[in-house]
């Protein structure tokens, strides 16, 4: 009786363990649309943060979900993925929002000069601040 109990409890633990490992291995990516934004800012604010101290800005923004608002200066589609460029106060840099597949379908409705709010994951700063997996908020 006791040995049976031991065996069954070991089995339960093992199955649970396998299940957890499997779940972890197949852990889904962050769903940007359904996750609360970590930081809400304007395109110019973000750019100023990156140009004044990139390291500090990296710690603040990288891998965070950022809700950014700004004026559209360009929209285009590269390899079936939409890219929205937002104006900043900086002369050269902008905020480049690479859209998700669902958001790309809405890119036709966007116009240059329009103010927009976009939510995405910040991956860093090259010439521009880059957001990936972006969703259009409004």
């Amino acid at each position: 009786m006791t040995s049976k109990k031991i065996i069954s409890s070991i089995l339960i633990v093992a199955i649970l363990g396998i299940y957890i490992v499997y779940k972890m291995y197949n852990k889904p990516h962050v769903d940007v649309a359904d996750t609360k934004s970590d930081i809400i800012a304007t395109a110019s604010q973000i750019m100023t943060d990156f140009t004044s101290d990139e390291n500090k800005a990296n710690t603040k923004y990288l891998e965070k979900i950022i809700e950014v608002s700004g004026v559209i200066i360009d929209t285009n589609i590269e390899k079936e993925k939409g890219i929205v460029t937002l104006k900043t106060d900086d002369d050269f840099g902008s905020v480049l929002c690479h859209l998700s597949e669902t958001a790309t379908q809405k890119i036709e409705t966007l116009e240059q000069g329009q103010t927009i709010t976009i939510k995405g994951i910040c991956t860093g700063y090259l010439m521009d601040v880059i957001l990936v997996k972006s969703e259009i908020i409004n």
């Binding site: 291995y25 852990k27 990516h29 962050v30 891998e63 860093g124």
Partner: peptide, 16 residues
């Protein structure tokens, strides 16, 4: 050429 490491997108979140 400049590449952001965090811009590499993997199929599995754990790999990334």
């Amino acid at each position: 050429i400049s590449i952001l490491m965090k811009s590499f997108m993997f199929k599995k979140a754990l790999m990334q």
